[in-house]
Design a protein around this nucleic acid. Structure first.
Lengths: 360, 360
DNA sequence: TAATTTTTGAGGTTCGTACCTCATTTCCTA
DNA sequence: TAGGAAATGAGGTACGAACCTCAAAAATTA
């Protein structure tokens, strides 16, 4: 069995009260005593039983995700993972909720952040566009004792905050590499379609993309980013124009997370099968188009990993621990038709997780 | 606050003792009373506080990983993730250990399994080659009340056991697709190098690989698998012979998880840069060769995800819950130079997880 | 209806830790 | 060296659930 506080008190030659004072940083302990207790901790390998501590403290972890309101399907899967994780961790005294605020309105995000009090919420994971107001609000929340992690899209300087999400420069570079290799020496131009180039993540993806293309694929010319501003009719319009004015488009990179309207317009104004097309995030549309061969690859981040990682980081911070960086690195996934996980299972059609049946 | 057993007792109009009998399946409760309590559970959304329950039960979760002994670097990273996860979950009363047994000796694996008693270990994650003896030992362990998950490599019929690992058929298909696309219409033969074709996972990878190549890339001919049996000198030998007898090798697929010796031999007897080379698992060697361009892609499964997923499944089973299949699906990762995560961070050289500093 | 069995209730103790009070010991300083 | 401040100990209660005992109530059977 793991040693308890009683074992620790005995080992250190002090009383339980003193052990308690040391472990919980209460005042009134001489340095010498403190050192003696800490030495005993190391000697017997004492680890505080977090469950018991939480129980005694009547502590529950309350975390909030602050998300944009837009109807991205990516966002929908994030939300469903949040709900799932909430259910899975409820028995561990972790409560996870989410709020959606109007995106692109820093004031509103900042206001939503400012309203959150330490006695309601222990930590928040925030997915918000880069903005000084948001940064300030995050800092103020931190000063109120609320733990803050940046979720998916980060602020310019991440220093004081943990970041959970992918390296967008690398994601763009990955897209560039795939387009370069998949176009097999053909020469031509590459269409780049983005929702907006004001968001930090879009800029980074573009930079990474261009870096690879210019370095290794001189046969490809990446065109200036077309901005759709999330408007389907505008999307259709700019893409029609692009195909009308360019006659040698060999590849398309859709770098925003809402690929649907762009993909539809591409299919309307060109033959998608003769181009290499790469988009971001796993959604119904990208899944289907990967499956039927319209899309050649999808660069994705796993919403489940994102959510669980953010929760682990918030829990660690709430307990005063440092999260394991190695564990919390979010992978840039490359999805092809083959590794989508949609095929029949290898051993027939048996589910990989057996259904419940053996509880006694 | 979450409702407690007292709330539940009040809501159901029974005593705490009866609630306890119902929740813990003790005898001596009328059906009508049982139904009333369950109805109250649903009505107020009672969820048992697992931490408190474990504390009262003096319960700790003791899980064991049963691994092969071979010196694969992949295995080494699995072990280091186990150690890491053990440390991370110690405060949650989860103890995780591992044992290594001689691989390819079903009797030894079976013996190791049979020795494990329910009062020492609550669950095991087993990574073992396909074999009837192992299957039987797994079934016997299950009957002794030990939860068993198959880890990374599964048995022929997974029905009664959970499986944590990738779909190897799909992994092979993914490799096939990448080789097909990366060879850009060149014609020639493809070398396939495997440790042994008796392991189920190797067979499945090969099948998936061939399926894609024959369906979509008639210009490529996959040669019969070269078996190395994990012996570096034999590896060198068979690969030398292959290059001597074949003069038009355009791609190589190394499908076993120990790619080092094979990659060294390829470099020795051919020019790796003119071939498309794909290997499995992220190791120092594959990382380095991806980085310098020798390797074109790596198909990998994340050891950290594997370990954490196995532990989550075992915990769920131990608590009598059903693991969330959606959460436990292990992704087939495609690694290129660009998405290895080795580059400088996008915002300068700032770590994504901030170092500890804000504990009060 | 009496005798018996089955169900239910009341209450206590325990797990490991937090947090509290009050008495006592030890230390420092005037 | 006395007086006051600081450090420490002793002991209690609480958290939410598990598990135990014994008595009382209800249901069943003869």
């Amino acid at each position: 069995m793991s040693p308890t506080t009683r074992d620790l008190a005995r080992e250190a030659g002090v009383s339980l009260a003193t052990v308690d004072r040391v472990l919980n940083g209460r005042p009134g302990v001489r340095q010498a005593t403190l050192d003696a207790v800490m030495a005993a901790v190391d000697r017997i390998g004492f680890v505080r039983n977090q469950s018991a501590a939480n129980l005694a403290r009547r502590r529950i972890y309350r975390f909030q995700f602050l998300l944009p309101r837009s109807g991205h399907e990516f966002l929908a899967s994030v939300i469903s993972r949040i709900t799932e994780t909430h259910a899975a961790l409820q028995a561990d005294s972790v409560q996870i909720g989410y709020r959606q605020v109007l995106e692109n309105d820093p004031h509103q995000i900042s206001a939503a952040l400012s309203v959150i009090e330490h006695d309601e919420v222990d930590g928040i994971a925030i997915m918000a566009p880069e903005s000084p107001q948001v940064r300030d609000a995050m800092l103020r929340a931190k000063n109120r004792g609320i733990h803050v992690v940046q979720f998916v899209s980060g602020q310019q300087d991440v220093r004081p905050f943990d970041f959970v999400g992918v390296d967008n420069h690398a994601a763009g570079a990955t897209a560039g590499r795939l387009i370069g290799r998949f176009t097999r020496d053909r020469s031509g131009s590459v269409l780049v379609i983005s929702e907006t180039m004001t968001a930090l993540d879009s800029v980074e993806r573009r930079l990474g993309f261009d870096a690879v293309l210019t370095a290794d694929y001189p046969n490809l010319v990446a065109l200036p980013s077309l901005e759709t501003h999330g408007d389907p009719s505008r999307t259709r319009h700019v893409i029609r124009n692009a195909y009308a004015s360019q006659n040698n488009i060999v590849a398309v990179y859709v770098l925003s997370s809402e690929a649907g309207p762009a993909l539809a317009a591409i299919a309307e104004f060109s033959d998608p099968t003769v181009q290499v097309i790469i988009a971001h995030e796993r959604t119904q549309i990208t899944e289907r188009q990967l499956w039927d061969g319209t899309l050649d690859a999808v660069i994705a981040q796993d919403p489940g990993h994102l959510v669980r990682s953010a929760v682990r980081v918030l829990r660690a911070r709430s307990d005063g621990r440092t999260p394991l960086a190695s564990q919390e690195k979010i992978r840039i996934e490359i999805l092809l038709k083959e590794n989508l996980g949609l095929e029949a299972c290898p051993f027939g059609l048996v589910p990989r997780i057996a259904p419940a049946e053996d509880q006694r």
